[in-house]
């Protein structure tokens, strides 16, 4: 009998010690993990926009986050955008604009939230939910970053995830104000190394650069070998001016598929096509509403 008690006692003590060690590690590393994730994203964003150590970010550049939500009220649904309010350069708060499914403005609610809290999904959801009241439920869908220079828009950055050959492929897409593609970066994937994983290579990703909105809306994948000069230009092996020339030549072409990875190439193309089309549609509606309602935003 005494043995069983000893066993239980010792086991419990061990569990408690183990739990404490793990808990403490978790608390310490969680902060570092979040900071690292943020830093990584920032790096990708700057690279996409064309900035690097040699070309630093200008002071006049601003990054504004727009969060899209789905608002459920009983049977009906509407789309909600959390946007920073206030004119360019002003200290503003945030506004939650609700738009119905067919694009008409419903209402706007002011949300009180600080700049760093707005990045935490939990805090953000809570603030919006409280402001809207219990009759409606909000669900976060995605976010976009609008990049401005002296207050006028220079780029949009979107996240997207879509099924690839194996599991999902996650990308970050940079579009210019006319919805042409500035650049594309593959954030996560589980494709086969040497085959589908080549979507990470410059000679695939950079094919999307400079393609304008109309080309992207009808983009397809062609199973032909990549012309040598195009390859050199994409990989950055020739000087910038010549490379740009060649890329201009090919900019209305479809995407050349990767050898042995047609499905992965097609997945990325369709993914980019879908993302761009949906984003353009939604942003046009949002812009129309912002203009009609005279809502001041810093972008």
């Amino acid at each position: 009998m005494k043995m069983i008690f000893t066993i239980i006692f010792r086991l419990t003590v061990s569990c408690l010690i183990a739990g404490t060690i793990m808990g403490m590690t978790f608390i310490v590393t969680n902060k570092a993990k979040k900071a690292n994730e943020f830093a990584r994203e920032e790096k990708v964003v700057y690279a996409l926009l064309g900035y690097s150590k040699d070309r630093p970010i200008p002071e006049s550049m601003g990054m504004h986050e727009v969060f899209r939500y789905l608002v459920l009220e009983g049977e009906s649904q509407s789309i909600g955008y959390l946007v920073p309010t206030g004119g360019h350069g002003e200290e503003g708060g945030f506004g939650f604009i609700r738009i119905s499914l067919d694009g008409t403005f419903i209402d706007q609610t002011d949300i009180v939230l600080s700049e760093d809290k707005v990045r935490e999904q939990g805090e953000r959801d809570l603030a919006i939910q409280t402001a809207l009241g219990p009759a409606r439920q909000v669900r976060f869908v995605d976010q976009t970053i609008v990049v401005t220079d002296h207050g006028s828009r220079t780029a949009y950055l979107l996240h997207g995830k879509f099924p690839g050959f194996k599991t999902n492929i996650g990308i970050m897409l940079a579009l210019d104000p006319g919805y042409s593609i500035i650049g594309l970066e593959v954030m996560e994937h589980e494709e086969d190394p040497g085959l589908g994983a080549e979507i990470e290579q410059d000679y695939f990703k950079n094919q999307f650069k400079l393609k304008d909105f109309d080309t992207i809306k009808a983009i397809e994948v062609i199973k032909k070998p990549l012309p040598d000069e195009y390859f050199e230009a994409l990989e950055g092996r020739i000087d910038e001016a010549a490379a740009l020339d060649i890329m201009e030549q090919y900019k209305d072409q479809d995407i050349y598929a990767l050898t042995g990875a047609t499905i992965s190439s097609d997945a990325v193309s369709s993914g980019v096509k879908g993302m761009t089309k949906k984003f353009a549609y939604r942003l046009d509606i949002l812009d129309k509403v912002l203009e009609e309602q005279q809502i001041a935003v810093p972008f």
């Binding site: 793990m22 590690t25 978790f26 590393t29 969680n30 570092a32 993990k33 690292n36 994730e37 990584r40």
Partner: peptide
Amino acid sequence: DLSLAAYFP
């Protein structure tokens, strides 16, 4: 596991 995930993502 937690440490590697945080410091060497």
